[in-house]
Simulated assay, not measured.
Amino acid sequence: MKVLETSPPLSAKCVTAGTADIEGLIRLRKLLLSDGDAHYSATSSEEDLAWQLHYQKWLLQKLNEPTGNVRVVVIHDEADNIIACATGILDERAPMPGILNGVQGWIQSVVVAPEWRGNGLASLLLSALFSWFSARDAGKVVLQTTPAGDALYRKLGFKNSGEDLLIKIL
């Protein structure tokens, strides 16, 4: 699927998620984790329920740490339903070129409700996270993408790292 984003609707505002947004965040993230065929998708109803319960607990903790290393941003529609979300995580690594302080940003779970795709909402979410990362002196931002999101991320300046992503389940 090719992603073509236009300008976001004038009423679209990106805000930091709060605990009242948890149900909507789980609903959107289910598009990635419950109904997908990626390595991170649930393979049984038990696994599906388990990630949702753990994600809810994680959100309750992280959303109540406003100065922490996680920022979840959301966009609501006119009826106050969450229609888009993204998560930013600050990660401290050993210093390297481009990240002398070791602070790197990670973006995950960028999800836009299917009926709202192509309206610039993902770009709006990422712009908010870029500002948050910059304010915390992150030297680079990294994300993992699917073919559906690749064009958007490249348009926003992301480049292929030249490395393969390897995963080992422990």
Rank of each mutant, 00 (worst) to 15 (best):
V3N: 04
V3W: 02
P9V: 06
P9G: 08
L10H: 08
L10I: 06
K13V: 12
C14E: 03
D21N: 13
K30M: 08
L32D: 11
L33R: 02
L33M: 04
G36I: 06
Y40A: 14
Y40M: 07
A42S: 15
S45N: 04
E47V: 05
A50H: 10
A50D: 14
L53H: 07
H54P: 04
Y55K: 09
Y55T: 15
L59A: 14
L59H: 08
L59F: 15
P66R: 12
G68L: 08
N69T: 11
R71T: 06
R71V: 06
V72W: 06
V72G: 03
V73R: 02
H76M: 06
A79K: 10
D80L: 01
I83E: 00
A86E: 06
A86C: 14
T87C: 11
G88Y: 03
G88D: 06
L90A: 05
P97Y: 00
L100Q: 09
G105R: 00
W106S: 04
I107C: 06
Q108C: 05
V110W: 01
P114V: 02
A122G: 03
L124P: 03
L126I: 14
L126C: 01
F133W: 03
S134H: 05
D137H: 02
G139W: 05
V142D: 10
L143P: 12
A148W: 00
A151K: 10
A151Q: 14
R154I: 04
R154W: 01
L156V: 07
L156W: 02
G157R: 06
F158E: 09
N160T: 10
D164T: 15
I167V: 11
L170W: 03
